[in-house]
């Protein structure tokens, strides 16, 4: 399996505060990696460095190297819009735009200049199918996305990311605002998508990590304590800190 994303000695500072203390993690094409760790361990901060979401926060400094398909994403010539098409992000709170389901999913393509109705129809349908929400919304494509349930909204948001054909999907606690059934639907969706996409998800739900992730990285105090196959992490981790966190002794 080829490596698609590398990060080397990544530090993030909020002003003088060092939030990330030198993270080096690689991601291969396809599959799911879960980032777990206590609140304040900076796993979301790390996730946001991977498509430069931290750029929007004033006073943030990122050092180290992050390369997508061998290209430094922090290089001055990087086209941020193009980068975020390749590396999409789904957030904790479902955040559909106040448009119709169709317009939400078609949004990225329209921005990119796609006007052909048939082409748009095909992409919207395909993305909604991949996000496992097509059957539920196909008769309401032109109704407001805000009228959908939280779980449906989240899957529409996933479809919105998929519509622009990303290589990597970042998810920041994608189910923590959802009920167990909606969460389970998102998990099934991700398990389908892992065959075609590299998925990196931050989760506080350890059982979710153990159910869906191929690989799990344990973050604590801005560092990666341990990263390994999920089975190893949950059955016999190498580090005591991991063991203590996984088994609920702290965190």
């Amino acid at each position: 399996m080829a490596t698609i994303l590398t990060s080397r000695d990544v530090h993030v500072y909020y002003g003088n505060h060092e939030a990330l203390k030198g993270i080096s993690l690689d991601f291969e094409e396809k599959g799911i990696t879960a980032l777990i760790g206590p609140s304040g361990s900076s796993k979301s901060t790390y996730l946001r460095t991977l498509n430069r979401m931290n750029d929007m926060i004033p006073g943030v400094t990122v050092t180290g190297n992050i390369a997508f398909q061998g290209n430094d994403i922090y290089a001055p010539q990087t086209d941020l819009v193009a980068l975020r098409k390749q590396i999409g992000m789904v957030f904790q709170q479902p955040n559909p735009f106040p448009f119709s389901v169709y317009d939400n999913v078609a949004f990225g393509l329209r921005i990119a200049g796609q006007k052909n109705r048939e082409a748009l129809d095909a992409v919207v349908e395909n993305a909604l199918r991949q996000a496992a929400v097509w059957d539920e919304v196909k008769d309401h494509l032109h109704d407001s996305a805000l009228a959908l349930s939280g779980g449906q909204q989240q899957r529409v948001c996933i479809a919105r990311v998929l519509a622009v054909s990303p290589k990597i999907i970042l998810l920041d606690e994608p189910t923590s605002a959802l009920d167990p059934i909606s969460s389970s639907q998102i998990e099934s969706t991700l398990l389908q998508l892992r065959k075609d996409y590299t998925i990196i998800t931050v989760t506080h739900n350890l059982q979710q990590a153990s159910r869906i992730a191929d690989r799990t990285a344990f973050f604590m105090n801005g560092e990666v304590v341990e990263v390994d196959d999920t089975k190893k992490i949950f059955m016999n981790p190498a580090k005591k800190e991991t063991e203590d966190y996984i088994s609920g002794r702290f965190g």
Partner: peptide, 9 residues
């Protein structure tokens, strides 16, 4: 309790 690691063992 859904134990893991040493707890599960």
């Amino acid at each position: 309790y859904q134990p893991v690691t040493m707890d599960l063992r």
